[in-house]
Design a protein around this nucleic acid. Structure first.
Lengths: 133, 133
DNA sequence: CACCATTCCATGCGTGTGCATTGAATGCAA
DNA sequence: TTGCATTCAATGCACACGCATGGAATGGTG
């Protein structure tokens, strides 16, 4: 059973959409604040780091990341730029295709990512339910 | 059965969250574009208009709207300002409490809201499922 | 080879957002 | 009454976003 009710009527769909909007606003706002306060990164930056830890092969092109994430290509480019400024990530040339850029975790980046994960999961669990304030 | 799986494990919750992020990005982006192209309003503006049509008593204070919607107080204030510039909404004084502002639909506003609703529902139905591109 | 469409990433620009603050209006308490 | 904390909506500010564009590199075609 996926999250979406496949046979939802129009009205039900609108209701689900409003629920989604509300939850999105509440959760992402809480994540943004906590990640920023405790680890000095935003939600977009966390999502990028998180992907990099999983796919840790060191062969992550910008374009691959962009496909996996909800960010536009330009937003990703800037998120990576911020991560690079913070020393959490490094841009590397790709010898095969010199248009492409590899994004690599630094040691500091991996460290921050792994410390941030518990925070992420905790806030997620705490704010997921609509009722909870 | 609500949208959320109440007993989701940590990993499942993260998965659901990513799904939500993806869907939110896809749907809201599509809504934004279609509403703008066909009716000249953004998604936030549509949400405000939609609330006003439902609660059409003419007694909608900014603060009440802010509570019902995923927008911050300042974002709502600006959304209403844009709607007012477009002549879709009118701000009225509240005699009981002269700090408060009533937001009222104009005829044009009601018209636009009612023409925009089908678009909204259609785009929602078309983009809701993750697989659909 | 020369040419051109395509792909990749970065960036200028306009816009919408949240946070913090402002100023007005209110309500309560001394 | 005066004084002060609270509530309401608007706004300055910084910032992240998407769109559109740009330059570099690539791949194919004549």
């Amino acid at each position: 059973m996926p999250t979406s009710a496949r046979s939802a009527s129009r009205a039900e769909l609108v209701g689900e959409w409003r629920e989604l909007l509300e939850r999105h606003a509440k959760v992402s706002c809480a994540l943004e604040k906590s990640l920023n306060a405790e680890h000095g990164i935003g939600l977009s930056e966390f999502e990028v780091l998180d992907r990099l830890v999983d796919a840790a092969k060191g062969e992550n092109r910008m374009s691959d990341l962009a496909a996996d994430i909800y960010l536009s290509q330009s937003a990703l480019s800037r998120a990576v730029a911020r991560l690079e400024d913070d020393g959490l990530v490094r841009r590397a040339m790709c010898d095969n295709d010199r248009r492409a850029i590899f994004v690599c975790l630094t040691d500091k980046g991996r460290e921050v990512a792994e410390r941030a994960r518990p925070t992420h999961r905790e806030i997620l669990g705490r704010t997921w339910d609509v009722a909870a304030d």
